[in-house]
Design a protein around this nucleic acid. Structure first.
Length: 223
DNA sequence: GTCCAGGGCCTAC
DNA sequence: GTAGGCCATGGA
């Protein structure tokens, strides 16, 4: 796959880093993921599937108020009750099963603590996460990067749209190829992967949505 | 009223 | 292997 257009500099490592630095200058350091604990980060990663974050925030606030941002309590609560608490995040019947499935997995395999996953190899954890119902590549990688500080680059719809519009790769590129692109071209630093993806999401909100007026000083217009 | 958001699963071909 | 349908709320 010839993803890069190195003749113009567009798509090469320097171009990516130039983009990264102009985004940070524009949006400021974002220090993701929004969440007080690693478990809350995982819950957010599941709840935000195909859903606006504003709707997820409401569901997380409800879970917090009910003291349910805890694997043991989430594992024990009846499914229907959990579904009612996360209604604002949409797809609540599916997502309640996914949350409970994740909580059960954590308890059965890692003593109910995200921290206990950290010593294990990224590949192993990723494989285990992908075996769970409702945890696909993006959710698994969000958990690995933002809850476990593992060095994986998260690809989302914004990433595909932004970089395909710039001609870096086709919009219908599959997840693993897109991930490989960034992990090959960027310096291998967790902090960079973390901040870059966060910046891309912020940019996506301005750049990708048809109904939203484009930001005049949007840094990517200049790239 | 219509569109769409920080996906993933299942089914049919 | 892949295209298409389905899941659902809430803000713009």
């Amino acid at each position: 796959m010839n993803c890069t257009m190195k003749s113009k500099g567009r798509g090469n490592a320097e171009w990516h880093m130039r983009m990264y630095h102009s985004l940070v200058k524009h949006f400021g350091e974002l220090n993701w993921w929004p969440g007080e604990t690693p478990f809350e980060v995982c819950v957010g990663a599941i709840l935000t599937q195909n859903t606006a974050w504003s709707n997820v925030e409401k569901a997380i606030a409800k879970l917090k108020a009910e003291d349910l941002l805890d694997p043991l309590r989430m594992d024990r609560i009846p499914l229907e009750e959990l579904a009612q608490h996360i209604k604002s995040s949409g797809y609540y019947n599916q997502k309640s099963k996914r949350l409970k499935g994740f909580a059960t997995f954590l308890i059965d395999n890692y003593g109910g603590k995200i921290e206990n996953m950290r010593p294990f190899a990224t590949k192993r954890i990723r494989r285990e996460l992908l075996e769970l119902n409702g945890i696909g590549p993006e959710t698994a990688d969000s958990i690995l990067l933002y809850a476990l500080n593992k060095r994986v680059f998260v690809i989302d719809a914004y990433t595909k749209r932004i970089f395909s519009r710039k001609g870096i790769f086709p919009e219908d590129i599959d997840y693993e190829n897109a991930r490989a692109h960034f992990e090959k071209i960027l310096p291998r630093k967790v902090r960079l992967y973390n901040e870059f993806h966060a910046q891309i999401v912020y940019l996506g909100k301005d750049y990708c949505r048809k109904s939203r007026p484009k930001c005049e000083s949007c840094p990517i217009q200049m790239l």
